[in-house]
């Protein structure tokens, strides 16, 4: 085990996979000379050269599209987009092409492409740089979607993503890059897609939380235990497609209560989808309606005080959990 920052865990995954497999190459804006907007790829150009680590022009749709073509032809490209908002410029290639090619051509060709990008609010980057859009990708059949919250998962999921034969949307979080965590040293440290991580066990309420919210939910669970005597079970699905519904349902059957936490918008969000699944499959086990905690239904504002209240923090999660238990809110 080594203690690594999330960013360095991702860098290690890329380095190891570049070493392991000659077919792996990286493309992205400012990933080489500049070292990456968030420094995930720092040092890789020096180590692997321009053939493997490619600075691209600012042409999101085209670099993702070239990733699709290269992947169809036997390479295993990893494309970095500077933030998830810019993936919207590449939505055509991601949805119309990457996601559908395997199906559209009758399974004859594969698209082993990874598109990495960070999301998230908290840095006052305003309405063009701050959103959480995992739900958009979750919507699309043909894509796998990973949302790692810890350094170990960042590394293990990225390595698995690169080795997977499907297109993977790999969503990092800007606020997590500097967070440290224990990471297994093995070059074969892989985290399987479709396996949730139970970060805290408990019997009173199930809290399912994605991306950065997995950590916020852990802190909320500590408050619930310390201040309210409530034992929450916290589940980080780690991947949204495939989704480890079994682990979530087993927990709900035990606690009879479910809170879903996401940073993105509520309409058609991760929580909306998951709440439907839980209601369809565990309705009889529920003692309270499924509760959702989400980002506010607004474009992310620049103003610090407005941004602060536009995405969830511990108190909202605590409140939602207490409500499912029929208790009054904490505030």
């Amino acid at each position: 085990m080594s203690e690594l920052r999330y960013r360095d865990a991702l860098g290690a995954a890329l380095r190891e996979e570049l070493h392991r497999d000659e077919r792996v190459l990286l493309m992205g804006e400012d990933i080489g000379v500049f070292g990456g907007a968030f420094k995930v790829t720092a040092g890789l150009l020096e180590e692997f050269g321009e053939r493997r680590v490619r600075d691209t022009p600012i042409s999101e749709n085209t670099i993702v599209g070239m990733g699709v073509g290269a992947a169809m032809s036997g390479l295993r490209p990893v494309v970095e987009l500077m933030t998830i908002n810019f993936s919207l410029l590449a939505f055509d290639q991601i949805v119309n092409h990457a996601a559908h090619i395997h199906y559209m051509f009758g399974g004859q060709v594969r698209v082993p492409l990874v598109v990495r990008m960070p999301q998230g609010a908290g840095h006052q980057l305003g309405p063009t740089h701050s959103h959480c859009l995992e739900a958009l990708f979750l919507h699309v059949p043909g894509l796998l979607v990973a949302v790692p919250a810890t350094a170990a998962d960042a590394k293990g999921l990225l390595k698995s993503a690169i080795r997977d034969d499907n297109p993977v949307i790999f969503i990092e979080h800007e606020s997590l890059y500097g967070v440290r965590g224990e990471v297994p040293d093995s070059e074969e440290h892989l985290v399987d897609f479709g396996r949730a991580r139970v970060s805290r066990e408990g019997s009173d309420v199930t809290i399912v939380a994605v991306s950065r919210m997995a950590l916020t939910a852990e802190r909320a669970a500590a408050v619930l235990a310390d201040e309210h005597g409530v034992q929450a079970e916290v589940i980080d699905p780690r991947t949204l497609r495939p989704l480890d519904l079994d682990t979530i349902l087993a927990s709900v059957r035990k606690t009879n209560r479910c809170v879903i936490v996401e940073e993105g918008w509520p309409h058609g969000g991760v929580g909306a989808n998951l709440a439907a699944l839980v209601c369809e499959q565990a309705f009889d086990d529920l003692d309270a309606p499924v509760a959702r905690v989400s980002g506010a239904d607004v474009p992310m504002p620049y103003s610090k005080p407005l941004e602060d209240i536009a995405y969830p923090h511990e108190p909202q999660i605590v409140d939602a959990a207490l409500q499912t238990l029929g208790a009054a809110g904490s505030r």
Binding site: Q124, L125, G126, P127, T128, P301, Y302, S303, L306
Partner: peptide, 10 residues
Amino acid sequence: CSRGRGGSMH
């Protein structure tokens, strides 16, 4: 000029 919603970039 953008009522605090946009910031430097907007």
